[in-house]
Amino acid sequence: MKEIKVLALVCLMFMGFGSIKSYAHCEIPCGIYNDEARVKMMYEHIQTIEKSMKLIIELSAVEKPDYNQLIRWVNNKEEHANKLQAIATQYFMFQRVKLSDDPVMKAKSMKQLELLHKICVYAMKAKQSTDMEMIKKLNNTVHGFDHAYFIKEEHKH
């Protein structure tokens, strides 16, 4: 009887572990990075957020809105804003922007962190509204980060 209880407990544990979500990219030093691809993904998420905003505005303006489609586009906007924030934080802030005591490297990192923070804030504001100004701010800030991060002579994997 005791063995059955232990077996049942082990089965429940495995079932619980199976429901845990996993997200890309790892936080171990695997060395498999493609920073350029991540920046490109950021721009693609912004384009998707913009398309979602435009369709939300369009669908909301009709006499009888299709609420199912509206909800789908709101959810889509939210999902891509979350993905944009995940790249900014989980990928760049936590793994790629390095801490340093060197004043030059520290200043560079601070600028990158400032831009990544702005990306997260503008993505949050994009979730909250259909303000197209957030799309401009997101594009400009990702562009600024792109230039602050990729300095050809200094950038190393």
Rank of each mutant, 00 (worst) to 15 (best):
M132W: 01
L115F: 13
K108E: 15
G144R: 07
T141W: 04
C120F: 00
Q112M: 12
E133I: 11
M134R: 13
S129M: 03
Y122D: 14
E114M: 11
M124R: 08
K136D: 15
M132F: 11
L116E: 06
N140Y: 01
L116K: 07
L115A: 07
D146K: 12
V121C: 01
K106V: 09
K136Y: 11
T141E: 06
M132T: 14
V121F: 03
K137W: 07
A123C: 09
H117N: 10
S109M: 02
M134Q: 14
C120W: 00
A148G: 06
L116Q: 03
Q112K: 06
K106W: 09
L115I: 06
T141D: 03
S129A: 11
K111C: 05
A126M: 02
S109K: 06
K127W: 04
M110N: 08
C120Y: 00
Q128D: 11
Q128Y: 05
S129Q: 07
Q112W: 04
D131T: 06
E133H: 15
A126Y: 03
H147T: 13
M124H: 05
K106E: 15
M124P: 00
K127F: 03
H147C: 03
D131Q: 08
F145Q: 05
T141C: 06
I135S: 02
K118Y: 13
M110E: 14
T130L: 07
N139C: 00
K111R: 12
K125A: 13
K111H: 04
K106S: 15
G144L: 11
T141G: 04
M110R: 03
M132D: 13
M132H: 08
L113W: 07
M134L: 05
A148S: 13
S129L: 03
E133G: 15
Q128R: 09
H117W: 03
K127A: 04
M105T: 01
L115M: 09
T141I: 08
K137H: 09
N139H: 03
M132Y: 08
N140F: 00
